[in-house]
Measured scan of single mutants.
Amino acid sequence: RLTVMSLQESGLKVNQPASFAIRLNGAKGKIDAKVHSPSGAVEECHVSELEPDKYAVRFIPHENGVHTIDVKFNGSHVVGSPFKVRVGEP
């Protein structure tokens, strides 16, 4: 089962990169992540390998409000996905 680490749920800033990590815990497959902005825009997140069992997911929010992040592994949502994060002040 995958572990999502260091996902900041609030206090993110517009046009500043945000990232979190995913540990695969021995699982093999493909991570896919997309961020949905409050206006409905959908953007791919950048996924990069940090070490053999750990990946970083990076995105840049372009507007204030609550964004939804879909994180999928081999086509299925990971536990807790979709995640909600707040950009800007509430």
Results as ranks from 00 to 15, higher is better:
L12W: 01
F73E: 02
A18N: 02
R86E: 07
G88K: 05
L24A: 05
T3D: 15
V66M: 07
H67C: 14
I60Q: 04
I69M: 06
V14P: 08
A21M: 14
K30M: 14
P90W: 05
E43V: 05
L50K: 14
V35L: 15
V85I: 14
G88I: 05
V79D: 12
I69R: 00
P17W: 06
P90M: 07
V87R: 00
K28A: 04
V14Y: 01
E43N: 13
S81L: 01
H62Q: 08
K54Y: 11
A41L: 12
C45L: 06
A27M: 14
A18L: 14
S10D: 08
V4I: 15
M5L: 15
G11W: 02
A33L: 14
K13Q: 13
S48I: 12
N15T: 02
H62N: 11
K84R: 09
H36A: 09
K34V: 10
Q8L: 10
D32F: 01
K13I: 15
F20G: 00
Y55H: 14
S81A: 04
V42K: 03
K30W: 07
L7Y: 03
I31V: 08
V79A: 07
K30Y: 15
L24V: 06
F83C: 06
V4Y: 09
R86S: 13
A18F: 03
Q16P: 00
E43R: 07
K34D: 06
Q16K: 13
E89P: 02
N25T: 12
G40S: 10
E49S: 10
L2M: 06
G88L: 05
R23M: 04
P90Q: 15
M5V: 14
E9G: 06
K28H: 06
G75S: 12
G26D: 06
H62E: 14
F20S: 00
S6G: 15
M5H: 05
L2Q: 01
E49H: 14
S48C: 13
F59R: 00
C45R: 03
R58L: 03
E9Y: 02
G80A: 11
F73K: 02
G80M: 07
H62Y: 09
N74E: 14
V66L: 10
V71S: 01
H77A: 11
T68I: 09
E49W: 09
P82Q: 03
V85E: 10
A56Y: 13
V78L: 09
E9K: 03
K34W: 12
K30S: 06
S19K: 13
I31K: 01
K84S: 11
A18R: 01
T68S: 10
G88R: 06
H62W: 11
S48T: 08
F83W: 05
Q8N: 08
F83G: 09
Q8C: 03
T68L: 10
Y55Q: 06
P52N: 12
S19V: 05
P17H: 06
K54I: 06
F20L: 10
V14Q: 15
K84H: 09
L24S: 04
D32L: 06
A27E: 14
G80L: 02
H46Y: 08
G88C: 05
S39D: 05
G40Q: 04
G11H: 03
S48Y: 11
K13C: 13
Q16E: 07
N74W: 05
R23H: 02
G29D: 02
K84I: 06
K54Q: 08
I69F: 08
I69V: 09
R86L: 11
V35N: 08
V87Q: 01
V35Q: 14
G11M: 12
V66I: 13
S76I: 13
V57D: 00
H36G: 15
P17I: 07
N25A: 07
I31S: 01
G26R: 04
A18E: 03
V4P: 07
S39A: 05
S10C: 03
F59T: 02
F83T: 05
G26S: 06
K34H: 15
A33Q: 01
L7P: 11
H62S: 14
G75R: 11
A41G: 11
H67N: 13
A21T: 15
V85K: 13
T3Y: 11
L7V: 05
D32I: 07
I22Q: 00
E89R: 10
T3F: 08
S10R: 04
M5A: 15
P82A: 02
P52L: 12
K28V: 09
T68H: 11
R58G: 09
L2S: 07
K13P: 04
P38E: 01
L50A: 11
P61Y: 03
K84C: 10
A41V: 14
E44V: 02
P52I: 14
P61D: 00
S48W: 10
P52F: 09
P90D: 10
V57K: 00
M5K: 08
P38M: 00
K54M: 04
N15L: 08
A33V: 12
C45A: 04
K54L: 07
